[in-house]
Design a protein around this nucleic acid. Structure first.
Length: 464
DNA sequence: TGAAATGTTGGGGCG
DNA sequence: ACGCCCCAACATTTC
């Protein structure tokens, strides 16, 4: 009895793949990936993610072929209809996949479960994309956690996650129904802009394993170096986790084994990822709207020029521009710098956080609806466990604290590459530089005051 | 997972 | 020697 193994782009691995295990127990396995941007509603994959997905699928094809299996690829506007068609073509009696937290994807699961039930076909949803199942962790009063630390404590109280599983032996369906070549999905259509991504990343399960091993050797020092964008201190696993080339519990156990109790700071970060999915599950509207209703009336500025300067890394603040250029070039940005650039957009420029969300969605290889939503609402102060609105990052002092030699700044802002660290941190103090490097587009001290008084307005509205 | 403004303290320069 | 002032260093408060 054929078992349809439905890959959904957050589960592109063979190791620790519970859906594959469940399918293999039932019968010959038919692995399928459907490219269905219309099913994602407001959030079809951005450009960087499409690049990653294309190469991750290519890697998955290769890995499957080693097991004698072919990945069936199709472009469709409607996953449910396409899956029903496949069920009829193959006589499959069950579909195996992994649950997703995104509202549109969860809706597809609901619809699919309904139409399959009518036909007596099973839908198996495995749940290893997060450490704990969605919706399974609640406060003492039964409400969803809105603050991270209690959530983290609750997660820890459940003990270590289950051990990962290996690749099962499985039979393969033959002959394979009609498939399309990977290129026909159109993920890489348009000009090739991805040279920087190719130089930085190796999408796929093997690349994920390399990153994990590399990180395990330095996991003990993570707590010490995690905030330093000039060093190789973080794991850089985010895109691999995003596409499910490694499961969070695989990463958890590997890092725990490598660093023991020294793993705690990184595991805590891994739990932030779970927190994001948990919040998206309970508050699906937050991808668009602030979690805290009071912020609906916040006096955001319309500023197309400022937005464009920010996107292109031309704000005149070296750390902000370095981050935005690293993002554009590599599809990734160090987390500390993400906070700084986000604070700059939302507070210094007072541009609506949703514009930042959209840009990150388009440009990040690790673009994830849950983490992206959580991060931007946190920065804007309108979300869960929000940074107090008055917490405004100073891009200069952040640069001096976390990039003390201006190595990171000089690497990404070529106009400053030949300057000494002091001048690279404060280029406006060096007369010669102004011709080469843009002057600050806002005065931070003034912008900070402007943001603080806007906050006072929102608070006044809440009271009124 | 801030930073600026404000308050406090103590050492040293200086009349 | 003494008291006054300045200000760096640190702590606390405020946004």
């Amino acid at each position: 009895m054929t078992a349809l193994l439905w890959f959904r782009g957050h589960d592109l691995r063979l190791i620790d793949n519970e859906a594959l295990h469940a399918a293999a127990r039932v019968g010959p396995v038919l692995p399928v990936y459907l490219h269905a941007p219309e099913d994602e509603e407001n959030w079809p994959l951005g450009g960087a993610a499409r690049w990653w997905l294309n190469h991750s699928l290519a890697s998955l094809e290769r890995d499957l072929s080693r097991h004698g299996a072919q990945l069936l690829l199709r472009r469709t506007s409607d996953s449910v209809t396409e899956l029903l068609r496949l069920v009829e073509e193959t006589g499959a009696r069950a579909i195996f996949t992994h649950r997703r937290s995104e509202p549109a994807a969860a809706a597809v699961e609901q619809t699919l479960a309904g139409v399959l039930r009518e036909r007596g076909i099973e839908l198996h949803l495995s749940e290893t994309h997060t450490l704990i199942p969605l919706g399974s962790l609640r406060t003492g009063t039964g409400t969803p956690y809105r603050v991270f630390t209690p959530f983290w404590r609750g997660l820890l109280a459940r003990g270590e996650p289950a051990d990962p599983v290996g690749v099962p032996t499985f039979e393969v369906v033959s002959p394979t129904p009609t498939t399309e070549p990977l290129a026909s999905l159109g993920l890489l259509d348009g000009p090739d802009w991805a040279e920087g991504l190719r130089q930085t990343w190796q999408p796929g399960e093997a690349g994920a394993r390399c990153r994990l091993e590399d990180f395990c050797a330095r996991a003990r020092e993570y707590g010490q170096w995690r905030d330093r964008p000039d060093l190789h201190g973080t794991s850089a696993l985010s895109p691999h986790l995003r596409f499910g080339e490694i499961s969070p519990r695989q990463a958890w156990h590997a890092v725990r084994a490598a660093a023991g109790t020294g793993a705690e700071p990184w595991l805590r970060q891994l739990a932030w990822r779970d927190f994001g999915h948990h919040l998206l599950h309970h508050f699906p509207h937050t991808t668009i709207e602030p979690l805290r209703p009071a912020f609906a009336g916040f006096p955001w500025r319309e500023d197309a020029t400022g937005l464009r300067d920010w996107q292109r890394g031309r704000t005149g603040y070296p750390l902000v521009d370095a981050g935005m250029r690293q993002l554009w070039h590599t599809g990734w940005m160090h987390n500390r710098v993400r906070m700084v650039v986000a604070s700059f957009l939302v507070k210094d420029l007072m541009i609506e956080w949703q514009h930042g969300t959209r840009w990150f969605w388009e440009t990040l290889v690790d673009a994830d609806l849950a983490s992206n939503t959580l991060g931007w609402q946190w920065t804007a102060g309108c979300g869960a466990d929000a940074a107090p609105y008055f917490r405004v990052f100073n891009p200069v002092s952040q640069g001096e604290r976390f990039d003390p030699e201006a190595t990171y700044i000089r690497r990404w802002v070529c106009e400053l590459s030949t300057h000494n660290p002091r001048d690279a941190q404060r280029p406006w103090q060096v007369p010669l530089v102004s011709a080469q490097y843009t002057p600050p587009i806002v005065d931070h001290a003034q912008a900070r005051q402007r943001a603080l008084s806007a906050y006072a307005e929102v608070r006044a509205q809440v009271v009124a």
